[in-house]
Amino acid sequence: MTAPELEGPVSMTDIVESGEPSAPAVRRARPVRLAGVCALVGAIVAVAVLLVAGWRAMPVNRYEVLVFLDAEATAEQRETIRVALNDLPYKQNARPRTKAESRAEVKKLYAAAGDSLPETASPESVAESLMVRTSGRAFDCSPLAAVTGLPGVANLLVNEYRKGRHLSSIAC
């Protein structure tokens, strides 16, 4: 018969079913079982290859780009900075944050570090800032180079959040 020809590709199933009579039903099940085993092997190999190639779970994070302005920044400089921020490849537009908002933020940062806000940090002494939000699996600093060098920019900080939790900040 043709049975011996089968032994090569389906030797495993042959071993498993060696005790059973070679009923037509069993024979029909063999390709199905083979397909299942091969699909599983394919999946495992694919995962292994990707792992070795450096693939990892990279959740989408939310990023908050903060641009702190010089206290002496002119209205013109502010406008230039705002336009430059809006030109960045982010969906949202930059939004100015008032001194009160910035102060609240600084206060929060101090509280997180276990300190209270120094007396000298009056609402006036806290720098004004612009903020733009974006999201992604990693933050690319390179587009920010267009903003960093502009006159009137004091500092730039990127806050990284995952599921609302502050992970870290990046100073590009």
Binding site: L34, A35, G36, V37, C38, A39, L40, V41, G42, A43, I44, V45, A46
Partner: peptide
């Protein structure tokens, strides 16, 4: 099947 498993 191998390819389908890998693709999936």
């Amino acid at each position: 099947s191998l390819m389908a498993g890998a693709g999936a």
